[in-house]
Amino acid sequence: MPLIYYLALSALLFSLGVFGVLTQRNAINVLISFEIMLNAVNLTLVAFSQFFQLLKGQIFVLFTIGVGAAEVAMALIIIFVIFKTFKTIDLDEIKLMRG
């Protein structure tokens, strides 16, 4: 399969993620959108790795998946704490930092 297919899919997924981050109010949904963006990038890396026949890209992707998993765990904990504090996870409701 030509490289362009992978890149197109990846761009589609990334745009979907951006759209989700910008539009969603639910913190969990935002988090999911972030993960989609992350994985779109991973996909790009893997595609280029295959295209140039280099293993470095694949190894790098393994690292990002690992770090991403840790990140999700941290993010979920933060969301949990936010929920305990504000009794909501609607991001628009949380405006302690308003000037």
Binding site: V18, L22, R25, L91, D92, I94, K95, L96, R98, G99
Partner: peptide, 17 residues
């Protein structure tokens, strides 16, 4: 200038975007 700091996460994201 103060209203720029809305405190809303999503507006910041829009700005970043």
């Amino acid at each position: 200038i103060r209203p720029v700091q809305t405190g809303r996460l999503r507006s910041y994201m829009w700005i970043i975007f």
